[in-house]
């Protein structure tokens, strides 16, 4: 045997950038994440050609799933053309030969930062959420080792206390995004900083969601048809953002999550946060035959 036998022919990078050993590790960890919904599985999280905090966790999950026939949609804050989303999507095409799309319905893998599309995902689609901070207990326990013990004991009393304090002080729960949610009745997760509007889309969904934090080196999952319940008190119902009556000034559509755009005169305008959903609505308004899938919310409500 020679040293050469131990290696492969030289290539600048592997298919999908990650080497086989990195992919195998991610495969093993993703399967464990699926097997124990909501539990944060530690993984090595290799460096990738993007800065930590810029979607490296989502990137590694997607790269592991990627094949040349994958159709990939990448969104940041709901927008496909947000600069970092563009950069990530280009990377998938560059190292994986993947087909790029902006259409939620056409995608096989959707990697997203901070939003879940308004169109309902199907069971053949995988949602990969980028996670900056996977630890819902961080605010009450910055020490990760202790937080891990608390998860082990399902010791979430302090989280309830935080929510209760908000109620007492402010009259309502003021947790904005990253709303702590109980998965399969066992683990509390941070659903990543998606708005409260989107958390309900994880509950008993048709699709698989992988949540991956590259910098913090944790991966967790919400399988399809799994309970995801925001922590709430029996007598204080969960409230999504008050966007049900807002109308998008571009597409004239009402009842979805909106971006608020401050105006010079002191007022605000609103536009759909899910940018391609907006594009499709506009095209439809202009008479094009555009296929828009069922949406999670109808008339601003979710069943």
């Amino acid at each position: 045997m020679t040293l050469k036998d131990l290696t492969k022919p030289w290539a600048a990078f592997n298919y999908g950038f990650l080497d086989e050993s990195a992919k195998r590790e991610l495969r093993r960890k993703m399967l464990k994440a699926v097997a124990v919904p909501g539990y944060q599985v530690p993984y090595a999280s290799r460096e990738v050609p993007m800065a930590r905090g810029w979607g490296t966790g989502g990137l590694q999950a997607t790269l592991t799933l990627l094949k040349p026939t994958s159709v990939v949609k990448v969104i940041d804050q709901g927008a496909d053309d947000s600069v970092n989303a563009v950069s990530i999507r280009k990377f998938f095409a560059r190292v994986g030969g993947a087909v790029e799309t902006e259409d939620t319905q056409k995608a096989t893998i959707i990697q997203s930062r901070h939003r879940i599309p308004e169109e309902k995902l199907r069971e053949d689609q995988i949602l990969v959420l980028q996670v900056p901070d996977p630890e819902p207990l961080r605010a009450v326990q910055p020490d990760m080792s202790i937080a891990r013990e608390m998860h082990g004991d399902a010791d979430y009393g302090q989280l309830w206390l935080v929510l209760y304090e908000q109620l007492v002080k402010s009259g309502r729960i003021i947790q904005g995004s990253s709303y702590p949610s109980m998965v399969n009745g066992r683990y509390v997760i941070s659903p990543s900083p998606i708005p409260r509007w989107d958390v309900k889309k994880l509950h008993q969904a048709d699709h698989l969601t992988i949540l991956s934090a590259g910098r913090e080196k944790r991966i967790y999952a919400v399988p399809p048809y799994t309970n995801v319940e925001p922590l709430v008190f029996d007598d204080v119902p969960y409230r999504v953002e008050d966007h049900q009556d807002k109308t998008c000034y571009r597409s004239n559509v009402t009842g979805f999550f909106m971006n608020e755009l401050p105006q010079d005169d002191g007022s605000s305008r609103h536009e759909l946060s899910d940018s391609h959903f907006g594009v499709k609505q506009i095209r439809r308004n202009e008479g094009e035959a555009v296929e828009i899938a069922k949406t999670w919310y109808n008339n601003g409500r979710m069943d």
Partner: peptide, 23 residues
């Protein structure tokens, strides 16, 4: 990486917080 990631847009999370405060 985390330090410079705060340059990325955060308007969705901000919107969500804004909603709670307005409430």
């Amino acid at each position: 990486g985390f330090c410079i990631h705060f340059k990325l847009p955060h308007y969705v999370t901000f919107q969500s917080t804004l909603d709670a405060f307005r409430g």
